[in-house]
């Protein structure tokens, strides 16, 4: 049995001259939560649409459950929420799910269970058009859950949710993963991906620029030294780290020097700084935030 539940090979979609997705190759392994990360307009949704057969690729190939994307066999085993939920505004949330259940060939119970799963049971009888953005989003997730598909494709599932909603969505995703379902989740929110994804793929301007674990993406840890004056502190820090030093200012306007943390003898460096008469305000070893990595990556591409 193939362990890759989704795999694409140079999947491309062109609209005129512009490539919305340009030779995107990614793999999602069975049982993992895969974060598909990128800024707005990077090609995340276009790629996911191709995986669901909504959009015909201009080039490249893809397999979902080992089948061509969009084939009934692949879709029956995939639940999805793509770019906002599409429901009948005049039907209640429950009726909408019942209609979807009929399309999927499922029984009536499925709709009620799915509603409970996303905490919408109380409002299930209200019309969809009266729902808040967050409730609509949750109903979309409920529709994706029906029938317990092996693969869930969720495009920005926390869009429009308040902090409590986001937290419960993350819990839901972790539960799904715990139950053995595979989740392919797109997001432009790094914190979300950082907290619940096993692996991530980063797409910028239609191209994949990274695929691997969150730890790989972040790379090495960094050393941050708040020390002044900068012109005396920088050479010492640079000498200790044997790497480039970046200078920035913190919120109090003091210089902060950032460099790679690996192999630095921190106490020795601090002694040296103090001996040289440098004022040391702070010393910290940090993991690079995903946001930093991400911004570096997106700017490098532009």
């Amino acid at each position: 049995m193939d362990d890759d539940i989704v795999s694409t090979d140079r999947l491309t979609k062109r609209y005129g001259d512009r490539a919305a997705a340009d030779r995107v190759s990614l793999t999602v392994r069975r049982g993992e939560v895969y974060g598909f990360l990128g800024p707005n307009g990077a090609g995340k949704t276009t790629t996911l649409r191709m995986l669901l057969g909504l959009v015909e690729p201009s080039g490249g190939s893809a397999l979902v459950h080992g089948l061509p994307p969009g084939s009934p066999g692949a879709l029956r085993r995939t639940g999805s929420l793509i770019e906002g939920p599409g429901f009948y505004p005049y039907l209640s949330g429950l009726e909408n799910l019942r209609v979807v259940a009929r399309y999927r060939g499922l029984g009536r119970r499925e709709a009620e269970e799915a509603l409970e799963r996303v905490d919408l049971a109380e409002r299930g009888k209200d019309r969809f058009r009266t729902y808040s953005l967050g409730m609509k989003q949750r109903l979309g997730v409920a529709a994706a859950l029906m029938g317990r598909p092996d693969l869930l494709v969720l495009d920005e599932p926390t869009n429009g949710l308040d902090p409590a909603g986001m937290a419960s969505m993350r819990r839901l995703i972790q539960d799904l993963s715990g139950d053995g379902q595979t989740v392919l989740l797109s997001s432009h929110l790094l914190a979300e991906v950082q907290q619940c994804c096993h692996r991530v793929g980063v797409i910028v301007d239609g191209r994949m620029s990274f695929e691997g674990t969150v730890a790989d993406l972040r790379g090495a840890r960094v050393l941050q030294v708040g020390a002044e004056p900068a012109e005396r502190a920088a050479p010492i820090v640079k000498g200790a780290a044997r790497a480039e030093v970046e200078q920035a200012r913190d919120e109090d306007g003091r210089t902060v020097l950032t460099t790679e943390a690996s192999g630095v003898d921190v106490p020795a460096m601090v002694r040296e700084l103090v001996a040289d008469g440098v004022d040391v305000h702070s010393v910290a070893v940090r993991e690079r935030s995903l946001e930093d990595v991400f911004l570096t990556m997106t700017e490098a591409q532009r």
């Binding site: 909504l54 009934p72 066999g73 879709l75 906002g84």
Partner: peptide
């Protein structure tokens, strides 16, 4: 307009059947 084609087609009936 409502985006329900998208919902319907991703349930896997196939476009002809839908």
């Amino acid at each position: 307009g409502w985006g329900t084609w998208k919902t319907v087609l991703t349930q896997g009936p196939g476009r002809l059947a839908a």
